[in-house]
Amino acid sequence: MLYRVEGLVIRSTDYGEGNKIITLLTPTYGKQGIVVRGAKKLKSRYGSLAQLFTYGDFSYYKTGTLGTLNSGEIIESFRELREGLEGPAYAAYASELTDRAINDDEAAAHLFHQLKACQSALAGGKDPQIVIRAYEMKVVNASGYAPMLDECVNCGRQDGPFRFSAAAGGALCLSCKHKDPTALELEETVWKLLRVFSALDLRRLGNIAVRDSSKRQLQLALRRWMDVHLNLNLKSRNFLDQWEKYGDLLGERMKRPEPIPETEAGEGKV
């Protein structure tokens, strides 16, 4: 049967001497694996369609597990995401996270649009740490492991302050924090951002200025959450952690946020 879809290339691997197998995230059929014959050859007609991050129109035949590309056209190459180090690092992480965290039957049109918006935001120069944290929350929600952020997961109390517990499932009030001694004490700004990211459509993401201490706490909270609930070993994440130079933070450091330089304390900073 012949299929025609719009899709984003989230994985591209060599197959045989001159071919590639690409994994597409599509709004209509979820994730689809397609063989692109001759993609590795210099004069390949469709080699550019097999590049990671490409957004295109794909026509393919499929009778079994894998399809075979019949024809295609690039809609947007996202060339900026293949230049330098920062763009490829964040975009590769978003693609690998999508591929590994989401089953074929869980991929839907909403996630397709969120990943496309994530790539557009990264290519457009928006703060990559904020963009990727927001997208992580989209993937967490799509995989069915969204944290409870508005009330205590143990007793239902709705007035904070709370601690963030990946093991318990989200917010723990002070009366219940003993349920998880490792629960994180987050800045109120971080709680607000987590709630915003959970509800946000990334296509409406504006420019958000966030203090470095808040970025670190956001990273730690979502890393802890994904480690507990998704348990993925991603090559791109290991590189990204080295790039961001954060990784898991010591508890003492979490309690003593870095002072905000005067140049970062201007209007619009959160």
Rank of each mutant, 00 (worst) to 15 (best):
H113A: 03
Y29I: 07
A142W: 00
G18L: 09
E83L: 13
G16C: 09
E73D: 05
E6G: 10
L194Q: 08
S71P: 11
E73F: 00
S214N: 09
E244D: 10
G47N: 03
I22Y: 00
K41M: 12
W191P: 11
R253A: 12
L249D: 01
Y60L: 02
A39S: 04
R100Y: 08
C152V: 06
K269D: 08
A89P: 00
K116V: 00
M1E: 04
E76S: 09
L230A: 06
P257V: 06
T23G: 11
L66K: 06
D105F: 05
C118T: 13
R45V: 09
G247I: 01
L249W: 00
L222E: 12
T189C: 11
K215N: 15
R11W: 04
G33V: 09
D241H: 09
V36C: 12
T65R: 13
L202T: 05
T65M: 13
A117I: 09
K62P: 03
L230F: 09
D248R: 13
P147T: 00
E136M: 12
A166G: 07
G247D: 02
E76D: 11
G30R: 01
S213V: 04
E262A: 14
N70R: 15
N207G: 10
K235R: 14
H229Y: 08
L202P: 11
L249G: 00
E76P: 00
G206A: 11
M1Q: 10
F53Y: 15
N238G: 09
R253M: 10
R211I: 04
G156K: 03
K245H: 11
H229W: 14
L240I: 06
R133K: 10
W225C: 07
I75M: 07
K126L: 15
V270S: 09
L232T: 06
N103Y: 10
M254P: 04
L222R: 07
E151V: 05
Y93T: 02
